[in-house]
C-alpha cells in the first residue's frame, strides 16, 4: 500500500549557500502532492535529501513512520521510495524492455553462482520478469517501441519509461522531479493520465515538483509552496493561485 513522507526541520548548506532552511512538510499517504516555488527555492535539494542522494545537515525525514534520514538511495529503493529525474536517466544502450527488466531487485539471475549452477531457476524468474515488463509496456502503450534502444526514444516516451520502472517494483511512493520538462502536449496528457491511474488503481503516493501550473492543477491536491529554502504555504491550487505572497515570491513584487 502507499506510504507517507514526513519532513521535519530539514536543512542543507552548500558552502555558504543555505539551500534548504528549516523545512517542515508532510505528504499524505495516497495523495498526489505538488511542490512548487520559484527557482532556487530548494525544491530539488529537498527531493535529493528525501531520495537519499544527499544527507541533510540537520533535521529528520520519516517514511511510513520509519526514520530514513541519510539513508542512501539504493536502500530506499527497496523500501518502496523511488524518484524520477528531470532529465530522464534511462539506460540509453539498452532496449526499452531491458530498461524495465533490469529494475527488480534481488533477481536470482543477478547472482553469478546462481546463474552458473541453477540456470532453470534463473530462467523461470526471467520469464516472470519479462511477463511483468510486457504488462507494464502495455499499460503505458509503449508496445511499438519495446525493442528500441532507450536512447532513441522521444523525451515523453523516456518519461513514460521512467514511470514504468516504478511500476516494476510496486513502488509505494514516487518522487516526480519536473516530469513535464521537455514533453509535448499529447504525450503529457498520456503521462498525467497514467499518473492518475497509478494513484487511483494501484494506490501510489506521488510527490511532484512542477513548474507547469496546468499539470499541477490537473493532478495535485494539496500543493505545497516553497521559497528560500522553507515552506511558505500550502493548500489547494485555486487558493494558492490567488495567494498574494505566492505571487510575490514568483514575480518578485510586481503584481
Amino acid at each position: 500500500m502507499a506510504a507517507g513522507i514526513k519532513v521535519t526541520d530539514l536543512c542543507k548548506s552548500f558552502g555558504g549557500v543555505r539551500a534548504v532552511d528549516d523545512c517542515t512538510l508532510e505528504v499524505a499517504e495516497g495523495s498526489i502532492t505538488g511542490l512548487i516555488g520559484p527557482n532556487g527555492a530548494g525544491k530539488t535539494t529537498l527531493f535529493n535529501m528525501v531520495a537519499g542522494t544527499y544527507a541533510p545537515c540537520e533535521g529528520e525525514i520519516l517514511f511510513d513512520n520509519e526514520d530514513i534520514t541519510g539513508i542512501a538511495s539504493d536502500k530506499l529503493f527497496h523500501k518502496g521510495l523511488l524518484r524520477t529525474f528531470q532529465i530522464a536517466h534511462e539506460f540509453s544502450n539498452m532496449t526499452a524492455l531491458e530498461n524495465l527488466m533490469v529494475v527488480p531487485g534481488n533477481q536470482a539471475g543477478e547472482n553469478l553462482l546462481t546463474t552458473w549452477f541453477k540456470p532453470s531457476m534463473v530462467r523461470d524468474q526471467e520469464a516472470d520478469i519479462r511477463a511483468k515488463a510486457n504488462e507494464v509496456i502495455k499499460f503505458l502503450n509503449l508496445s511499438h517501441v519495446k525493442n528500441e534502444l532507450a536512447g532513441n526514444l522521444s523525451g515523453g516516451q523516456k518519461k513514460l519509461l521512467e514511470l514504468g520502472r516504478t511500476m516494476m517494483v510496486d513502488a509505494k511512493t514516487v518522487l516526480l522531479d519536473e516530469v513535464a520538462a521537455g514533453v509535448n502536449r499529447t504525450l503529457l496528457n498520456d503521462l498525467s493520465d497514467n499518473i492518475l491511474r497509478l494513484n487511483r488503481e494501484v494506490g501510489y503516493t506521488f510527490f511532484v515538483i512542477e513548474h507547469d501550473m496546468d499539470l499541477i492543477a490537473k493532478l495535485c491536491d494539496p500543493v505545497i509552496v516553497m521559497a528560500q529554502g522553507s515552506v511558505m504555504t500550502q493548500g489547494n491550487i485555486t487558493d494558492i493561485r490567488a495567494n498574494k505572497q505566492v505571487i510575490e515570491a514568483y514575480f518578485g513584487g510586481a503584481a
Binding site: 538511495s73 539504493d74 539506460f91 539498452m94 533490469v102 529494475v103 520502472r165
Partner: peptide
C-alpha cells in the same frame, strides 16, 4: 552465460548509467 543472464544486464546498466542504477537499488 553470465553476460546473457540478468547479471550481464545489470552490469551493462551500471556501466551505462551509474546514478540510475544506484537509485534503482543496484549496489
Amino acid at each position: 552465460r553470465a553476460y546473457n543472464a540478468p547479471w550481464g544486464r545489470m552490469m551493462r546498466a551500471i556501466r551505462d548509467n551509474e546514478i540510475s542504477s544506484a537509485s534503482m537499488g543496484k549496489n
